[in-house]
């Protein structure tokens, strides 16, 4: 495994919250992508953490675009670079609201058209930039400002929606496992056509955890099976080693939920549903990896 480069493309002057794993993710993404890269960013926390005009904390070009529009913007950009014979990486860096909810039409279109780009959804499971309102990615039982009693619906299964587009490369990751994340971004960028990486990005203020706990919570998500790390290259699924180890003896789900204020007072039935969803997901992934479906 290659060492993660020392070069930084995300300067230390970002305006992100303390303990922000979205900016941590981006740091690794840009290390993997290098300087010949353009980021396309729809409305999300990353719109804000660049800083305020005329300053920017990023040392690659960032094109900010309207909420629903990221994947379509990348489509135009990717085709334009291709028309000039340039190999510049076009990476969409979007939150879960901009991906799962308002941006899913443009995303679906860009994937279907075989756009040569990498779409990264960093998923903090709510509309973080506007102060934690429920999104389609919010898990059942989580309190947000618009689900003060805990969300009663399940998290939308973005990965299976994306998988239905049969794209060349798809993966999940979390910055709690940076080498795994780094390698996946490298692979995605080396694969022609559309690639998609879904990142679990624990959010200290939104998830009501201490700022120094976000990496720990990311690890707990993997160890409890709440978040499974895998990649699918040209239809071949491989569960990544941190999740492989976790699956041998999963940590109890309560360990992940209890450290987060957003799950305070979650009902037993909601925990039960979350547990069942985890088991179903793991079983399906294991079957697919074994070539049984």
């Amino acid at each position: 495994m290659a060492e993660i480069p020392k070069e930084e493309y995300l300067e230390k002057c970002t305006t992100a919250c303390a303990g922000c794993t979205s900016s941590l993710t981006l740091r690794y993404v840009l290390k993997a992508a290098g300087p010949d890269t353009v980021l396309v960013v729809p409305a999300c926390c990353t719109s804000i953490l660049q800083g305020i005009y005329p300053n920017t904390s990023f040392s690659v070009p960032v094109y900010n675009i309207a909420f629903a529009a990221a994947a379509a913007c990348a489509s135009g950009m990717s085709e334009a670079f291709a028309s000039m014979g340039k190999k510049t990486n076009v990476i969409v860096y979007a939150g879960d609201g901009g991906t799962i909810d308002i941006g899913i039409q443009a995303l679906s279109g860009a994937l279907e058209r075989g756009t040569d780009f990498l779409y990264i959804c960093y998923d903090n499971e709510a509309y973080g930039n506007t102060g934690m309102q429920r999104s389609g990615a919010t898990p059942m039982g989580a309190r947000t400002t618009t689900t003060p009693g805990g969300k009663t619906d399940a998290k939308k299964d973005l990965d299976r929606i994306v998988a239905a587009h049969n794209i060349p490369y798809q993966a999940t990751a979390t910055p709690a496992y940076p080498k795994d994340l780094y390698e996946k971004v490298k692979t995605a960028l080396a694969t022609p056509g559309p690639s998609f990486i879904h990142i679990l990005a624990p959010c200290p203020p939104g998830w009501r955890i201490a700022s120094d706990m976000s990496v720990t919570v990311g690890k707990l998500a993997v160890k409890t099976g709440s978040w499974v790390l895998w990649e699918r290259k040209y239809g071949e699924l491989r569960i990544s080693s941190p999740s492989k180890s976790a699956m041998k003896k999963r940590a109890p789900l309560r360990e992940y939920l209890s450290v987060q204020g957003r799950f305070k007072g979650i009902s037993d039935s909601a925990v039960n549903e979350l547990e069942q969803a985890i088991e179903k997901n793991i079983a399906q992934l294991a079957k697919e990896e074994a070539g049984e479906c």
Binding site: A72, C73, G76, E79, F81, Q105, A106, G109
Partner: peptide, 26 residues
């Protein structure tokens, strides 16, 4: 020309924006 058969007009204008900012005609 690169012909992008987008999935909506919102995306048609956005794809033109993405292309145009790289400096090409759209």
């Amino acid at each position: 020309a690169r012909y992008i058969p987008v999935e909506s007009e919102h995306s048609a204008m956005t794809a033109c924006i993405g292309a145009s900012i790289t400096g090409v005609r759209s």
